[in-house]
Structures are given as structure tokens and as C-alpha cells.
Computed example of a mutant assay.
Amino acid sequence: MNTKDKIYVAGHTGMVGSAIVRELRKQGYTNIITRTHKELDLCRQSEVEAFFANEKPEYVFIAAAKVGGIRENIECPADLLYINLIINANIMKAAHTTGVKKLIVLGSSCIYPVDIGQPMTEKDFLSGKPEPTNEGYAIGKIAAIELCKMYKRQYKDPFISCMPTNIYGENDNFDLNASHVIPAMIRKFHEAKANKLEEIILWGTGTPLREFLYVDDLAAACVFLMNNYEDEEHINIGTGEEISIMDLAHVIKDIVGYTGTLYFDNTKPDGSLRKLLDSKKIHELGWKHKTNLLEGITASYKWFLEKY
């Protein structure tokens, strides 16, 4: 990409999209196009096609998505499947029709099969079924990754896709009914501290292992891939480091300054027991994360305090 190329970031108000915009501006890109949901409904094909025909973006980052934590994944599978499927299909079709120079689609590590070896390589994709509590979201994202490949295979479109690990950071969703584990714990511990609660109950056993990537590092990876990656196969983006949910809880507890007792409700689901990406491929290309977990969670909590 050249710094004056017209770049469209879909989903710029979300955590990942806003980080990509920040990273692009940081690197000197000046011609960035964005639209809010009120200005452009990505679920409506006619609106998306009209937008691409009028604006003719040269590069496209698809960061728009409907996401949620384990509770929303269980309760809203149809919404998660439909919205993620239709957003990606509409954007890719319009990008194909108008001849964009390059497009990147973001998947998620949770769409890998539940019962495979660790760490998960790109070759493990579609080798089994996703974790049942995550099925709706996973199938929507699987379809997006495959559609990206098929446009490249059939039409030679310059579309690429990536598979990030669990993301957290600035502009995260702190809604306790829809958030992922890090923002949910930050808010829960902060409110328990403010209300002087003596104990907190968390879902599951605390034993599952998770890998986390700070959102600004993901944004840097996406810009890096747009400039350095061409293959049909998606590419993993992770740190190669993991932590148990129980240990994570104690890290966040210390950062927030909550002094009460933690209890884990083992009658609630754990989700996948382990989800570690093999990110050797992107590391060999020259990208690596810069933010460690302690720094990232501290920055996330600072943002939470400023914005909430």
C-alpha cells in the first residue's frame, strides 16, 4: 500500500477496526474511509454495492463482526452465524465487482476444531467440528475464510485471510452479557471492588488455557500482512504464549486491586480446554507481538476507567 491509497476499514468503531485505523494513521496512511452502521448497513447487499461503486476503495480491511462471550455464543447462535456470514459475503462480492487491489478477512482461533493437537497450525483448519458452545459464530467465520479463498481461486482476486488468537484491549466490549473473558473480568472485579464485595464467582473450573493478543499488535499484524502476504491459505496471528483462566483471573484481580475471594463455578461450561495457535508462519515473515499480557491488561483497565 502507498500512503495515499484509498483504504476502507469496515467496522472502524469496534475494537479491532479502531486499532487498524490507529495503526494506519501511525504509519502515515492518510486516505482512510470509514462508515458507521447508521451510514452503511453491511448486512444489506444493495447498500454495500452502492458504497463500493461510489467510493471505489483500493484496499479493504474487514474488521466488522458480531462477537460475544460464551454466554452470547450459547444464546444467540443464529444471529452470530447470519450476521458474520452476510457481512463478509457482501463486502467480498462488492470488492470483487469493483476490483479492489487487496482485501484482508479476519477469522478467529475459536473456529478451529475442538479436538485437535496443540498448538493449532493452519493445516488443522476444517479437520473437525468447532466447539459446540461456539458453533454459530464459528460457522459464520469459517464460511468467510473459505469464500475469501474461493474468490482468489476462481477469479485470482487479491484476497487474503488471517486467524487471530483471542484479542483484547482498547475499545473492547465490557458488557457482562456479551463480552469475552478479559473485559468481563476487568469489569466484574472493578465493580466488586467499588461495591466492597467479599467474593466473586466465575464460570467454569479455571483450568482451560488461553492465548491472548493485545489489539494494537493485531492491527500491526494486519497492516504487515496487507503489505507482505499473498497466499491463498489463511495465516495464524498469535503470541505463542498461554495462561490458565485461573491464573488470568489473579493477574486481573491484582491489576484492578480487588482483595476479595475468587470462586469458580464448575457447573458452568469451560469451553475449549486449550486454544494455542502455531504462529511460526507469520513470525518467519518478520512480525512478532510487542505487548506482554501484564502491559496489555494494565492498558485495558486504564482505558476502561477513562471511558466507563
Rank of each mutant, 00 (worst) to 15 (best):
Y8V: 04
V9P: 04
G11K: 00
G14N: 01
M15R: 08
V16M: 12
V16Q: 12
G17M: 01
S18P: 03
A19S: 06
I20F: 09
L24Y: 08
R25Y: 02
R25C: 01
K26I: 00
I32K: 13
D41F: 12
L42P: 01
L42W: 01
R44N: 13
A50F: 14
A50Y: 14
A53Y: 11
I62N: 15
I62F: 09
A63G: 13
A64G: 07
A65S: 13
K66W: 12
E72Y: 13
E72P: 05
E75T: 10
L81H: 14
I83F: 09
N84I: 00
L85V: 02
L85G: 12
A89N: 09
A95Q: 04
V100Q: 08
K101P: 04
K102S: 10
K102P: 04
L103I: 07
L103F: 10
S109V: 06
I111G: 06
Y112S: 08
M120P: 10
F125E: 05
P132T: 01
N134R: 09
A138Q: 02
G140I: 00
K141G: 10
K141M: 09
C148Q: 02
K149W: 09
D157P: 03
P158Q: 04
S161M: 04
S161H: 05
M163D: 07
N166Y: 11
N166Q: 05
I167D: 10
D172K: 01
N173V: 09
N173I: 06
A178V: 00
S179G: 15
I182H: 12
P183M: 11
A184F: 11
R187N: 15
R187G: 12
E191N: 10
K193W: 05
K193H: 11
A194D: 10
L202F: 07
L202M: 05
G206F: 03
R210D: 09
E211T: 05
E211K: 08
Y214G: 06
D216Q: 06
F224E: 09
M226I: 00
N227R: 03
Y229S: 11
E232S: 07
I235W: 09
N236V: 02
I237Y: 11
G238H: 01
G240K: 03
S244Q: 11
M246R: 15
V251S: 11
K253V: 01
T261R: 13
L262R: 03
Y263H: 15
D265N: 13
D270V: 00
D270G: 05
S272A: 14
L273Q: 15
L273I: 06
K275N: 14
K281L: 05
K281P: 00
K281D: 06
I282K: 07
H283Y: 13
W287N: 13
K290C: 14
K290A: 13
T291Q: 12
N292E: 08
N292Y: 08
G296D: 00
I297G: 12
T298W: 01
A299L: 06
K302L: 08
L305Q: 14
K307L: 07
Y308R: 15
